Amino acid sequence: MRLHFGAFNCPREGWINTDVTPHVHISRIPGLARVIHALGKMSDQRLVEHQRGVFRKVEYLDVTKPWRYGSGSFDAIFSSHVFEHLPLHGARNCLKESYRCLKTGGVIRLSVPDLDAYISRYLPEHSLDWAIGFFEANETSEKNMHHFMYNFDSLSALLHSVGFSSIQRQHYKQGRCPDVEKMDNRPDSLFVEAIK
């Protein structure tokens, strides 16, 4: 079994796809997406995704809380651009659960915005725009804002602190994670893999 957390509208075949998006719950009630769209509270794109059944392929999972999966359940865990949206204590809890739920020898692959790349683009005369982008401060929902940012060293330290080893920086669509060529979808990211 393989777990994809933070799948949102990109569920992948062969994986248990999870997210905290309310679209998971909306998709379970026939016709609700159309009603929300008619009220002007859902974009045309999201309605089309509901009509295609995208969110029915996603299960609800709050990764900051204890997971319902048994210890040693998964061969692989994948996540793209989720960790920066978690407060640090939530990220630690998520990694503890990831470690518990992975089989020995299993791999976790995380992709996040690269803190070092963000810092390299900082210009004092554009500090407001830079900070808005850095924190995703224009988002209206707190869960969509950035709560913490990582470079390779800080993410490695966090992985190591919960027991992971063989922590390596990887390239886009390359690594030990199964299906990495179809899972990766954000090329300008920091990619890190670790082994239980």
Rank of each mutant, 00 (worst) to 15 (best):
R121F: 04
R100L: 04
L110V: 08
P124E: 10
C94K: 04
I108C: 06
L88K: 09
R92M: 07
L128S: 09
N93T: 13
E125N: 10
R109G: 13
L115W: 07
G90D: 03
A117Q: 12
S127V: 05
T104S: 15
G90N: 02
C101G: 11
R109A: 13
D114M: 07
L88E: 04
D116Q: 14
I108H: 03
Y118K: 14
R100K: 15
K96E: 15
L110Q: 04
C101D: 11
L123F: 15
G90T: 03
L115G: 06
Y118D: 08
G106T: 14
C101V: 07
C94V: 12
S98T: 05
V107T: 15
D129C: 01
C101W: 12
C101K: 05
L88G: 00
A117V: 04
D129K: 14
V107K: 05
I132A: 11
D129V: 02
W130Q: 00
I108Q: 03
S111I: 02
L128C: 05
H126A: 01
D129L: 08
L110K: 06
P87A: 05
E125F: 12
R121W: 02
I119K: 12
Y99I: 00
R100C: 08
S127L: 08
G90M: 05
S111W: 01
C94L: 09
C94I: 10
S111Y: 03
L95W: 01
S120I: 01
R121Q: 11
R92S: 06
I108N: 03
G106I: 08
C94R: 02
R100Q: 09
D116N: 13
I132D: 06
E97T: 02
L123W: 15
E125C: 06
L88M: 07
R109T: 15
L102C: 06
G105V: 06
R109C: 15
R92H: 04
A91I: 07
S120R: 15
L88N: 05
L102N: 03
Y122D: 00
L95C: 02
W130I: 03
P87W: 09
S111L: 05
V107D: 06
S111A: 14
R100N: 11
P124A: 08
L128E: 12
T104Q: 13
V112Y: 05
L88F: 09
Y99R: 09
V112S: 04
A131Q: 05
L115V: 07
S98K: 01
D114R: 11
C101Y: 10
S127G: 11
C94T: 14
K103C: 12
H89I: 09
